[in-house]
């Protein structure tokens, strides 16, 4: 039996999931809880937001995110990959830092513009 907290609405139902041939979900007060629990059990996904190093910018790091939510299991492998990236300013917002990561059809993009530092 697994336990999840539903985040669809402020009620925050405690969902209990029994994994047999099919998923049996209890504790939900509405249908949306079932959908949420199924997704969370079968293929939980998250948007990853972090920073990567950048040379010559007004700040030493630039924020990035995945263009879509990625399966949770890829979060730490992707963080590792991104720790090896170094960009050079200037960089626009929405710039593709990594393309088609882990063949998921998802990119990592910058979420702000980084101007070059005037020395």
């Amino acid at each position: 039996m697994k336990k999840l907290t539903c985040i669809v609405c402020p009620l925050s139902c405690s969902l209990f999931i029994e994994e047999k041939e099919e998923l049996k979900i209890t504790g939900n007060k509405c249908e949306r809880g079932i959908k949420y629990a199924k997704e969370e059990i079968r293929n939980p996904k998250r948007v990853l937001t972090t920073t990567v190093k950048i040379k010559d910018g007004i700040y030493p790091v630039i924020p990035v995110r995945t263009s879509k939510p990625i399966p949770k299991d890829y979060i730490f492998p992707l963080l590792k990959k991104l720790s090896e990236v170094e960009l050079t300013a200037p960089i626009p917002s929405g710039y593709k830092v990594l393309e088609n990561i882990f063949n998921l059809g998802i990119d990592v993009i910058t979420t702000r513009e980084m101007k070059k530092l005037n020395k």
Partner: peptide
């Protein structure tokens, strides 16, 4: 600018943005 996580703009822009994107 320092809130780089998502969760901004769902009400106003009807899409989920990070802080810097919302500011931009």
């Amino acid at each position: 600018n320092q809130c780089i996580h998502p969760g901004f703009g769902l009400l106003y822009f009807k899409e989920e943005l990070t802080g810097p994107e919302y500011a931009e």
